[in-house]
Design a protein around this nucleic acid. Sequence first.
DNA 1: CACGTTTTTCACAAAATCTTGAAATTTCAG
DNA 2: CTGAAATTTCAAGATTTTGTGAAAAACGTG
Lengths: 168, 168
Amino acid sequence: MNLTEAKQQFVQSWGVLGSQWGINRTMAQVHALLLIAEKPMSTDDVMEGLNISRGNANMNIRELMDWGLVDKVIISGDRKEYFSADKDIWRVATRIMAQRKKRELDPMLKVLNQLTDLEGDKKDPDIKAFTEVIGGIRKFAGHAEKTLDTIIRAEENWFLNSFIKILK
Amino acid sequence: MNLTEAKQQFVQSWGVLGSQWGINRTMAQVHALLLIAEKPMSTDDVMEGLNISRGNANMNIRELMDWGLVDKVIISGDRKEYFSADKDIWRVATRIMAQRKKRELDPMLKVLNQLTDLEGDKKDPDIKAFTEVIGGIRKFAGHAEKTLDTIIRAEENWFLNSFIKILK
DNA sequence: CACGTTTTTCACAAAATCTTGAAATTTCAG
DNA sequence: CTGAAATTTCAAGATTTTGTGAAAAACGTG
């Protein structure tokens, strides 16, 4: 396999992976493209690289910036905007965790907390059973939240940090 | 909030969460419904509970069984099949991890491995840069794989098991 | 500040995904 | 075995998600 084929393969696979995780396939492909780019790319480069429209390229690049996975790069003497992806996979992973935690886990915890105190006889076996299941999920989600927070702020934690170094 | 409202709220939220994770919204709702059901439900119960068609209910229940999240329950004296969801959230989580690892991480690792030895001059800076990025991702994915395997087989590992007990 | 360039927006189109419902198949009690 | 009940399948339709491209807005150079 040569470099060009390998790059195509990677962009393709990264896109599939993303779509399985509820991330727009094209957004994942743009990310892949920028990850393996020699140097920052312009919107036009991305359009050409993936055969997508300007609007599509623009929206996905913008969203990648929202996620903190891609940065805008100014190239002096050029009026166009260029973009490059963070190549540190650990940082990529923590950024993604942080985003998803904020968008999904936190709202879910809010709902779960609301569901734990509901009106009615606390002795009612139906209510007890429900409260128990919700309580279990809430406990789990709460620990997940704590664990994620720790990982996300890993730099501040020597124990986990040394653990992470092994992973790196 | 009363029990009925709370149940609806939970089914709704669980469905949203699932769809954000690349899981069919209805499948997640069926799962939620079974999680908080007092007793095993039939296909008809699910159809009525979520206002969905028989085919839809059937397919999603079947898929939940594939994931190992729902079991078929025989009620003697009744010809219908009944279903109930595993209420142990830790087990639910490990089952999901195991499925996703198999379906997503493992294929990705296979691709990454293929991409590391490609033809061409190993000294070519383009090739070197590419190999480096892929190598980083592969290393990360490899560690993720090991970690997940450990978690999934946690029962066999006293150290992690005691760690997990804290989480439970 | 005028004007060409670049970026953003957004209504509509296309594509991907999910749902339905009825027919085909399977199951099992009698 | 038989036949009614239950389950499964799947083509067609509905819905949701994603992509396009041209117009509008923003930008920044001279």
